[in-house]
Design a protein around this nucleic acid. Structure first.
Length: 561
DNA sequence: AATACGGCCAACCGCAGCACG
DNA sequence: GCGTGCTGCGGTTGGCCGTAT
């Protein structure tokens, strides 16, 4: 982009200026008695920098300021050179090929702009970053998925192959597989993976979640993460800084706090909550929960990113980063073999408890629903819902209740619909995300997403089927992991392996039916008998796991008739 | 026509990793 | 081993411009 600043009052400061000890009150900063200019670069400055680099080469940027008379800090010089002056820079809009590549790379890498730039000759990380951020906003408004179905599915397939091949954290096979697909996945992505530790540790870097990890994590803490991985659109407020604006109380504290689950195990609930992006501590008092804050979760890239920042462990709650599909530096294997999904539930429960899933709050749904994107999503979802009602009718004869049925039987929930639309597209998990959203959302589900994503469902394995207490069934599972729940005995629930902050569900049959229905029609019979409800939360949430992949699952049935 | 808003781009800031003395 | 400086990276902010209201 061309410089717009006046080039007449050029920046090349005179000797006098250079040595002036005065502080530049126009944005410049004084360093070692020198005034460093800030702001847009002028052509004169560019010329100086170019000339300097020609003579001395790149690097040693701090020397530029010392030797060229250019009053820019080294960082500024490097940035200017890298982004605008260096040869072979490709200017102009991204081509379709480039855009597609960016999407694919982002699905693989997350917000690793520099790495992505390496795959796009002539393009800078800044360009890509700006493009992506713009794209996100655009697609949000359009109610479109962040990742095109093909990209999501591709990532999904890759992750699937990874899972089925039994690759674990220590297995470099990940790498090979991914690279075979022409994507360079940094080693670091898998560094943290550890095989079969037997304990579900944590979701260390949700920001770096990969397809596989998403598949595995979707059901848990990631729930909150993915509930918000579409950055919420801030209406009428440019550059609203969620960290401070939305959570004044947590502003700096929440940011970048993302301890591993190892820590969670000994941490207080509120700490855990914050770690997963919840802006508020687990507070028994619902009134203390600011809907806005909660919405952050949703919007946080955490899901804020979604990202959650893909690059750094951050509180999804306050960051607008999108979730990458990277493998988290965690124990993926443990998800599959884990015998203790506790952390997940803890988090989920915390998540759940924040905003009471009551009808009164629904309109106020503290989720991404409050975002402008959600408005768009709502619109789209409505359209889809109406279209899908037809299909729903077809299955109305089913013995079990489908999400669509549920939706029909309850007050239409905008939030829910939006979440569904949100979830599918966002991650390669597509449906998995949807399932999560719908299941975690306190309200009825339109079921539209479920229908559409049917093909992907099998990969998700997140659905939970509630089966009547069947010792034989549960005993076959990881011992101690699955506990039969007796909704009539709060104590039993609290004592379950899946820690519960809540008490118990009021009507066991409702939970049972709800969960069963989720598996019944949506998931099909294939996995119908492969999941078991392990526990329930105080607010109508049911938790369980799937036998075929041991994935934790969660669903909510508060709105069941 | 005035204003508000969003898109886009460039630049800055803070942090982390690394190398070196 | 420690402190310092350099570099790179990712996130954020500021400003211009076009468009919508």
């Amino acid at each position: 982009m061309s410089l717009t600043t006046s080039e007449s009052d050029d920046m090349v400061l005179s000797k006098d200026q250079i040595e002036s000890p005065s502080i530049d009150d126009s944005g410049g900063s004084a360093v070692r008695g020198f005034i460093l200019k800030k702001g847009p670069w002028t052509s004169a400055e560019d010329a100086i920098l170019i000339d300097y680099v020609k003579k001395h080469g790149e690097g040693n940027w701090n020397a530029v300021q010392k030797n060229s008379g250019l009053f820019r800090c080294g960082k500024s010089c490097r940035l200017r050179w890298a982004n605008h002056l260096r040869p072979n820079l490709k200017k102009g809009a991204f081509t379709q090929e480039e855009e597609q590549l960016i999407v694919e790379l982002h699905a693989k890498m997350g917000n690793k702009w520099a790495r992505m730039a390496a795959h796009l000759p002539g393009r800078t990380d800044n360009e890509i970053k700006n493009y992506w951020n713009t794209r996100i906003k655009r697609r949000q408004r359009a109610g479109l998925p962040l990742y095109p179905p093909e990209v999501s599915f591709q990532a999904l397939q890759e992750s699937q192959s990874l899972n089925t091949s039994g690759i674990n954290s220590a297995d470099k096979g990940h790498h090979d597989l991914l690279q075979a697909n022409s994507y360079e996945i940094p080693d670091v992505v898998f560094d943290g993976l550890k095989a079969n530790q037997g304990v579900l540790h944590y979701v260390p870097e949700l920001s770096d979640i990969t397809t596989s990890s998403m598949l595995n994590l979707m059901k848990g803490p990631v729930l909150s993460q993915y509930c918000s991985f579409m950055p919420p659109t801030v209406h009428r407020q440019k550059r609203l800084r969620e960290s401070t604006a939305l959570f004044p109380g947590y502003g700096g504290r929440v940011k970048n706090e993302f301890p591993s689950f190892d820590h969670f195990q000994n941490d207080t609930p509120d700490k855990i909550v914050r770690s997963f992006g919840l802006p508020f501590p687990l507070d028994p008092d619902p009134t203390t929960k600011n809907p806005e804050s909660f919405g952050v979760i949703q919007g946080s890239h955490t899901l804020s990113n979604g990202n959650f920042s893909a690059s750094k462990p951050t509180s999804g709650a306050v960051k607008l980063e999108l979730p990458s599909l990277q493998y988290p530096e965690t124990d993926l294997g443990s998800w599959g073999t884990s015998s203790s999904p506790q952390p997940l539930l803890e988090t989920v429960d915390a998540f759940i408890q924040s905003p009471p899933p009551t009808g009164a709050v629904e309109s106020d749904c503290p989720s991404p629903r409050n975002s402008g994107l959600l408005d768009a999503l709502l619109h789209e979802s409505k359209t889809l819902s109406s279209a899908k009602n037809h299909s729903s009718d077809k299955s109305s004869n089913s013995s079990s209740v489908t999400p669509a049925d549920i939706a029909d039987s309850s007050t239409p929930n905008i939030c829910e619909t939006e979440w569904e639309e949100y979830g599918d597209p966002l991650s390669p998990l597509g449906h998995s995300a949807t399932s999560l959203f719908s299941e975690c959302t306190p309200l009825s589900a339109s079921g539209s997403s479920l229908d559409e994503q049917a093909p992907v469902e099998p990969f998700i394995g997140c659905k939970v089927k509630s089966e009547p207490i069947d010792p034989a069934c549960t005993q076959d599972r990881e011992k101690g992991t699955t506990s039969l729940f007796d909704v009539n005995q709060p104590d039993a629930l609290l004592a379950s392996d899946w820690l519960e902050y809540g008490s118990y569900i009021k009507d066991p049959t409702i939970m049972t039916d709800a969960i069963a229905s989720l598996l019944g029609d949506d998931l099909g019979n294939e996995y119908k008998h492969m999941a078991t409800v392990t526990s329930t939360s105080s607010q109508g949430w049911g938790f369980g796991s799937c036998a075929w992949n041991n994935m934790p699952a969660v669903c909510h049935i508060s709105e069941l008739p």
